[in-house]
């Protein structure tokens, strides 16, 4: 069965979500998938919440646009507000198990009682454990890769390393491993079944 994963990487400007999307797309290419990355452009990309979308598939991608995301990574409440809280279709998908949200446990105020949300301390772990607040996005990438079930841990780590300047490679590698482990620790939530949805061939 042909599959595709629609994923959205959302945050406040400067949190590095566009780079996170690039890393995931490059990991996708390296894993033999088709990828399409689109991101906001123009006035709406300045300030406030921003997003970048990656579609992954085992078949060539006709429609490159992200629909209701299978996985939404939100590192800031502004992004959660813009791309989840105010979008009934996304909230419904979360409740029905068609969307998984990875949100920053401290920076996003999620609605109580909504299923499908995994709140993890991306920013806090970056700041306190890795002493580099800027790698919160790469922790997010690690968590994303684990949850997606579409990447090996090595593949995502290599993609991150490839995009890193040499001096920052160790901390970025550590970040992506930390993110993977954070998500994996919630194995009871994620039973190992693949995220994504079937598409007609």
């Amino acid at each position: 069965m042909t599959w595709r994963v629609d994923s959205r990487f959302a945050g406040a400007g400067g949190q590095g979500l566009a780079l996170a999307a690039v890393v995931v797309a490059e990991a996708g290419l390296a894993s033999g998938y088709a990828v399409a990355l689109t991101q906001e452009y123009g006035p709406e990309a300045r300030g406030g919440a921003s997003r970048a979308d990656v579609v992954l598939s085992d078949e060539p991608i006709a429609n490159p646009q992200c629909g209701i995301p299978d996985i939404l990574l939100a590192l800031h409440d502004k992004a959660w507000h813009k791309f989840a809280r105010t979008r009934p279709a996304v909230m419904a998908a979360l409740a029905e198990g068609r969307c998984t949200a990875l949100v920053d446990a401290d920076l996003v105020r999620v609605e109580p009682g909504v299923a499908g949300i995994l709140a993890l301390p991306f920013e806090a772990a970056a700041r306190t454990e890795l002493r580099a607040k800027v790698v919160a996005n790469m922790i997010g990438v690690g968590a994303f890769a684990c949850v997606s079930g579409r990447f090996s841990r090595d593949a995502i780590e290599e993609a991150v390393a490839k995009r890193s300047p040499e001096a920052f490679r160790p901390v970025n590698r550590a970040a992506v491993r930390r993110g993977w482990d954070m998500a994996a620790a919630h194995g009871s939530v994620f039973d190992g079944s693949l995220v994504g949805h079937a598409v007609s061939a």
């Binding site: 088709a34 990828v35 399409a36 990355l37 689109t38």
Partner: peptide
């Protein structure tokens, strides 16, 4: 168009 111009693909 703008979408193809700014989209990234393999």
């Amino acid at each position: 168009d703008e979408v193809i111009g700014h989209m990234r693909e393999g």
